[in-house]
Structures are given as structure tokens and as C-alpha cells.
Design a protein around this nucleic acid. Structure first.
Lengths: 120, 120
DNA sequence: GAGCGTTATGTCTCAACAGACCTAACGAAA
DNA sequence: TTTCGTTAGGTCTGTTGAGACATAACGCTC
């Protein structure tokens, strides 16, 4: 229709992947994991994302429980009060999800544009 | 937590597409539209999907409002009490969404498997 | 040992949402 | 004119979830 403008930033696919029963992973948890990895602290990540610590902890706990193996390792007490970091499983999870999300948006750009065209 | 079987089809991508603010479309609404098209009645579709008529109507109304143009056309009174059917916009919406969903699951199979492998 | 910041929970409240129930309007058919 | 099944809502309630708050445990540092 309009070949000139290609700035379609208002549309995007946010994949939520369902693994097994009750366990799901979406953009929210991935962002949280990424921030925890960056700041090495659940509390700091929660502050940065403007969510209550409790919620951040619940989300991470649900991942740890759901995967059977921990996605985030924590230590309490000690220098700075403690901290948190991603396990290799957690790192892989973020990496794989990013790859999936990137591919989804790239490969499906055509169909996305088709849906978007309907909103005009 | 048992591994169950190896051939677990329990993983899939359910895309929810965000168009503009407040307007989103996901598998639920698409299924509803499909059923309305099939049965030519909102009430009948709601019964088949085991959801209250009110909810079905609210979902459809949100689509009609969100798109600015109606996605479902209705008539009240008359033979059989009335009925409903998809507009061409509604039909296109279902078609485009189906194409997107199919492509997503096909093209991203590799990355999906990678994520799934982490759950073992 | 006291202080500190973090992890780890429990509990309470409030808003949002889903579902249930109810009523009105409509128009063809009987 | 009455009946009937549908569309089109309004309203109430139970449930769920998020957020706010409180508290304990932990282990370095001072």
C-alpha cells in the first residue's frame, strides 16, 4: 500500500512458550533473568524493572521449580548482603529464547505486515 | 516431575499480536471468530466453546471497537432469532492469523527444539 | 556482638476479571 | 398478537493476581 514508510514499530510478536504443565516462559521472565544476570542481585533487578521484590522472587522460584534444576543461584548474607547469578541453564535459556524471538520476528515479518495492514 | 514420553507435543508457540494500544489478538479470539463463522451465531459459538455468551460478546465487541470497523456482523430478531457472520475483514483476520501461526511454528521448529531440550 | 543489605517467606488488601443471572429489543413465524 | 431464539447489554459476586507490608535468616564488615 504505502511502500515509503517501513517504520512499523507498533506491532510485535511476544512469544510465550508452554513447556510441560504449569511451566511457561515469556518476555517478562526473560527480561528478569537478563537483569538479574546484569546486576547480580534479585532485589536490584526488581528495583530496575519497577516490580516488587516478592514478585521477582516468585517468578524466579517458579522457574527453578518448573525446570527441576535451578535457573538462578543465590547466596544470602556476606558482603553486600548476598547476591544472585544465572546458572548455565539460566544463561542457555536466555540465549535460546533470544534466538527464537529474533527468528520469529524476522521470518514472520511478511505475515506480520499482512495482519498489520488490516488495522488501517 | 516425571519425564513422561519423549515425543512430547506439549510445546507450542501461541502468538499474541499487539496492535495499537489496548488492542490485541490471540488464539482465544481467533478460535471464537472461527466458530462464529462456522455456526453463524454468537450464542451457538459460545455454547460450543463452553464460555458465557456475555464473554463471547465482549470479546467480539472489543475487536469491533478496536479495529474501528466491524469484524462480526449481526442481525437480531427474525428467523431463528437472529444470527452473526464474519465481515470480510473478520475473514481476512482469521486467514492472516492462521498463516502467521503456521509459519511461526514451522520456521521456528529448530529454536523451539533447542528450548525444549533445556527442560530435560 | 551490632549493623547492614540481601535472600526468603507469610499475610493482608485491593483491583481486575470471569462467570452467573437478569432484562430489553428485535423481527419472523405461528 | 403471542411465541421464540437471538443479539445487546446491565449488574452482582467469587476468584485470582499483584502490590504493600512485615519479618526472619544469613554472613560479612566494623
Amino acid at each position: 500500500m504505502r511502500p515509503t514508510t517501513k517504520t512499523s514499530a507498533a506491532i510485535l510478536v511476544r512469544p510465550r512458550i508452554y513447556l510441560g504443565k504449569g511451566l511457561a516462559i515469556g518476555p517478562g521472565k526473560i527480561d528478569l533473568l537478563r537483569t538479574v544476570a546484569e546486576l547480580k542481585s534479585i532485589a536490584a533487578a526488581a528495583r530496575k524493572l519497577s516490580i516488587p521484590y516478592k514478585r521477582a522472587w516468585v517468578l524466579i522460584d517458579s522457574l527453578n521449580q518448573g525446570f527441576g534444576k535451578p535457573v538462578v543461584e543465590t547466596t544470602s548474607g556476606g558482603k553486600g548482603g548476598g547476591g544472585a547469578s544465572l546458572t548455565t541453564l539460566g544463561q542457555q535459556l536466555v540465549e535460546k529464547y533470544d534466538a527464537l524471538e529474533r527468528r520469529l520476528n524476522a521470518q514472520a515479518a511478511e505475515e506480520l505486515a499482512a495482519v498489520r495492514a488490516l488495522t488501517d
